Simulated scan of single mutants.
Amino acid sequence: MGLFDRLKKGLQKTAKVLNTDVRDLFRAGEILNDEHLAQFERRLIESDMGVAASMEIVEELRKKHRGRTVVVEEIWATVQSKLHELLQGQENVEYDAENPLAPLNMAEEGPTVILVAGVNGVGKTTSIAKLANLLHKAGKKVVLAAGDTFRAAAVEQLTMWSQRIGCDIVTKESGSDPAAVAYAGCERAVETGADVVIIDTAGRLQTQKNLMQELEKIYRVIGKKIPGGPHESLLVLDATTGQNGIIQAEVFSGIIDATGLVLAKLDGTAKGGVVVAIRQKMGIPVKYVGVGEQIDDLQVFNPEQFAAALVSE
């Protein structure tokens, strides 16, 4: 499948819900009224698109179609256009879906450091492996740093992925200081002339103050070893968590100065609209989306394609 087809497949649960809503509420030949629009707004909110974004979409429909005969294709076109605008954000971010490096702030010289954080169980380690694979296939020399030293299984998983991809990995014994792993990963990248070092961190809840302080320490240590690092601080969110993802994003962003989001598990949710809510409220660009379980199922986030996939049948 092509990139758009894979994105469309990953979002098919959400798209099915939205398509059903539109078919139920907007019937060809009827006059579009306020009751239809109010019901559609409720459905959008239920898809976790957020109140503010849902109101903006409905206001656009009201402005262009209220009091007119319903033409379903025109309704969809308006929804898609507004979704695209909201997903771009005020910065008008529009990444090239064909270029896996397009979303990344690459260092002008020396290795680019990518710090990755998130709560437990969001798919962080798998997302790191997928990102490493993207970079490796683009010809970049990658080093992984297994900073989740609390879970031996996480280190083993990342080691397995590194062997499969064909990239270097830095590990330390279980219980080691995660900041020391991050430092060692940066050191290895400098010594070997690697292009990118990706640093995994232990999953943690945003309410665990000691672990959040540890994350802050990792962030500081990276900057001491590689000036300007981390060049990317990516927060991995599980799309199936819905609105709770916004709370996570707000807290983590303050600790690691998040530069972008990776949305995992989009293929498992009927609430893919949360991407719109997070993008609008946080002002942090979505950089990559996970649309499946395979190593190649990480895609550059492209607002236009995402909006089209959300409303496709």
Rank of each mutant, 00 (worst) to 15 (best):
A179G: 13
L3R: 13
D48H: 09
L205I: 05
A154T: 02
H36M: 14
L32Y: 02
R151D: 07
N92L: 12
A53H: 04
D48M: 10
A97G: 15
K209W: 02
M106K: 14
E187Y: 02
S81M: 05
I295M: 15
Q213P: 00
A154P: 06
F150C: 05
L25C: 09
V262G: 09
G223M: 11
I284S: 09
N120G: 07
K141Y: 01
A117P: 05
P111H: 09
L235Y: 03
I45V: 15
I114G: 05
R6P: 15
Q280M: 06
V70S: 01
V79F: 03
L144G: 04
K271V: 05
Y219R: 13
N302F: 01
R220M: 02
G203Q: 07
T125R: 01
E85M: 01
L237F: 11
D48G: 08
I75N: 03
G2V: 11
K217I: 10
A97Y: 01
A270S: 14
V274H: 03
G139W: 07
L135S: 08
G228H: 10
D24K: 15
A270Y: 00
I222N: 09
V113G: 13
W161V: 05
R204K: 02
A138M: 11
S233Y: 12
K225L: 04
V113N: 12
Q88V: 00
D200R: 09
I222G: 10
V113D: 09
D21E: 11
I169M: 07
V119G: 08
P227V: 00
G123M: 01
